[in-house]
Write a protein that binds this DNA or RNA. Structure first.
Lengths: 200, 200
DNA sequence: CCACGACTGGACTTGACAGTCCATATGTCT
DNA sequence: AGACATATGGACTGTCAAGTCCAGTCGTGG
């Protein structure tokens, strides 16, 4: 693929990701994508076998987006108190959007998991990667003596992500950030309960 | 509406709810509903103004279904240990289905919240009702001296539901019950941390 | 410069879907 | 019985979406 081709492909994925985030997979037609990316049908079908292939690329793009955002929040976290900054940033972002949109990965998972095995697996990979990054951040905290040596970074990471997904789903449907705050605070408290004695 | 009419209407809603639970709103056509309920177009449009109106009825039906299921689990809970039965039943049901389907209310919320304000509000009402029932169960526990007088039943209920939603979403996309278990155990531990001194 | 593969434009086909329309049936009340 | 509201059958329309096809253009290596 030439540089021009790669740019076109990227433009298509970018546009599709935006439309799908706003309107869902079912609510986004290829004609919408063409308009938003200034491309033609032949271009879409030149770079993607069919709509499902495009969706697959969108899932991977959204995974990258989520991981990048999480990295900006987690990379400099060195203490349990720092983890609260993660919570606050997510709550602030959700509040700013009134919950609209939700998690780019979570909404895709909910819409596609039971409809396309391929899509489901891709979203699951995204969550897996996310959990790994979060776990390694927690492992760092444990190494720094913030967390008890018996704390399980992998399990804690899964709980944190689960709490976040539930909170975002409720924020999306209630247009309120109340449940998100409660569930994230619960998760933080849970991590805190695995703090090394004397740290808190 | 005559009794026969009411029966027809109920058959339509029932069939639509089943199809939508399996295939999503976008993946369910009115022709599908007709076939599954043995009705004709005129009947659909006799009882519902348009597809959105039918979806609204489906949301209310699924709300009833969820509340009824939750009632069977919660009505006889009188202790914190009893609450663990609630967790176990949900995990068992999810495991049996390999996570497929998810929460009838949660999946509808995720698909519709940003697409239809009316649908969003209906799903939000459903969650609200659910939270109320769960909170009154927790309040009973508090009255029975299981929970500390300072425990907040409403907040605890919201956390429990949020954790459940996140766990079900992850179960659906990973086809694993691991995150669901972790997040529900975390929520139970959180409730336990509000137990009356000496109960645990 | 020219040949060939990568790339692009856009018309066209096919099918599905929401919603309309009118004719007919059913049942109840008088 | 018969009038009238409720209920039902099913053909029809218009729209929109996915996917196909072919005629071109671009750009780079030989």
């Amino acid at each position: 693929m030439t540089a021009r081709g790669a740019a076109t492909r990227a433009r298509i994925v970018e546009a599709a990701a935006g439309l799908i985030y706003d309107r869902g997979v079912g609510g986004t037609s290829l004609d919408d994508v063409m308009r938003a990316s200034s491309t033609s049908k032949s271009q879409l079908y030149h770079y993607f076998a069919d709509k499902d292939a495009l969706i697959g690329a969108v899932i991977q793009a959204q995974t990258c987006r989520v991981l990048a955002f999480q990295a900006t929040l987690l990379d400099h976290v060195e203490t349990l108190a720092g983890l609260r900054g993660w919570r606050d940033a997510i709550v602030a972002a959700t509040e700013a959007a009134c919950g609209v949109g939700g998690c780019p990965l979570g909404t895709l998972g909910s819409e596609l998991a039971d409809r396309s095995e391929n899509a489901r697996a891709l979203v699951a990979e995204g969550f897996q990667a996310w959990e790994l990054r979060l776990a390694s951040c927690l492992r760092r905290l444990r190494e720094h003596g913030e967390l008890d040596p018996g704390a399980e970074p992998n399990d804690l990471a899964a709980s944190l992500i689960g709490a976040l997904q539930g909170g975002l789903l409720l924020a999306q449907t209630t247009r309120t950030v109340r449940s998100l705050k409660l569930v994230l605070d619960m998760a933080l408290e849970h991590v805190g309960s695995r703090a090394k004695a004397g740290v808190l």
